[in-house]
């Protein structure tokens, strides 16, 4: 699904990723853990194609080089980023946004656009799975949403857009335990043989609910250790200091 080789990225001449390698097969869930400033969010941004970064190295997605694709083209090809801080867009209705987005992705997949009625049905079904009230969906996109609502909205979008590679950027930050469980359930219900996940987190807490196949430790722009869930548990006990 995703092969990254010797990925380097810098922004404003500051090197952030310094030769990162990772390989994710279909159906796998990889967790990337690391202290603040280790380059976690940069990795998420680079994968989604955000502009402003100087990049070298190789990123292959579904066997193809990603570098030529723009942000929207990557999204249409099934890369989904759940934002750490979902952006507020005033005046834009959440429902309409989601439908526009879904129909773009469907079009790219060669599927027919969903009409308003079928979309509403789909949306209601997915929203209720996440315990999202319909009222929230008629509000302006992320405007005035609580931290939990914003994150739930990200997971709802993931479920509706049906991507192949999901990048969760510190989705657990700022959530209480109830919201965290709902979000973990949402992610777990979306796991299957075809979908891959890259879960970026600072704390091991999330991994109690979303069980990773592999855990990597990111430090100073490189992966310095990889292992199983046991690695995350060790980190929780000893902290990053003992590893780095």
């Amino acid at each position: 699904m995703l092969q990254i080789k010797n990925l380097k990225a810098s922004i404003n001449k500051k090197n952030i990723l310094k030769g990162l390698d990772i390989s994710i097969n279909p159906g796998e869930l990889h967790a990337i853990m690391g202290p603040n400033g280790s380059g976690k969010s940069t990795l998420a941004n680079v994968l989604s194609g955000k502009s402003g970064y100087e990049i070298s190295g190789e990123i292959k997605y579904k066997g193809k080089d990603l570098s030529e694709l723009k942000v929207d083209e990557r999204a249409q090809n099934g890369i989904f980023l759940a934002f750490q801080y979902p952006t507020e867009i005033p005046g834009v209705n959440t429902n309409n946004f989601l439908r526009t987005s879904l129909n773009k992705v469907r079009k790219a997949r060669g599927e027919k656009a969903l009409d308003a009625l079928s979309f509403l049905k789909l949306m209601k079904e997915k929203a209720s799975e996440l315990g999202i009230e319909e009222k929230m969906l008629s509000r302006q996109l992320n405007v005035g949403f609580s931290g939990g609502e914003k994150k739930k909205n990200e997971i709802l979008q993931m479920k509706i857009l049906n991507p192949n590679l999901v990048v969760l950027d510190e989705t657990d930050s700022g959530l209480d335990i109830d919201a965290l469980k709902i979000i973990a359930d949402g992610v777990n219900s979306f796991r299957d043989k075809a979908n891959s996940f890259l879960v970026i987190t600072h704390y091991q807490r999330l991994l109690d609910y979303i069980k990773p196949d592999f855990v990597h430790v990111l430090s100073d722009g490189k992966i310095i250790k990889s292992g199983s869930i046991e690695l995350a548990k060790e980190l929780e006990k000893t902290g990053y200091k003992n590893i780095i």
Binding site: G49, K70, V71, D72, A75, L81, T87, S101, K104, V105
Partner: peptide, 16 residues
């Protein structure tokens, strides 16, 4: 940031 968010959900620049 708003443009990036929309792009990430599959909207091209003009649509965003």
């Amino acid at each position: 940031e708003q443009l990036f968010y929309c792009n990430q959900r599959g909207l091209d620049q003009e649509e965003a």
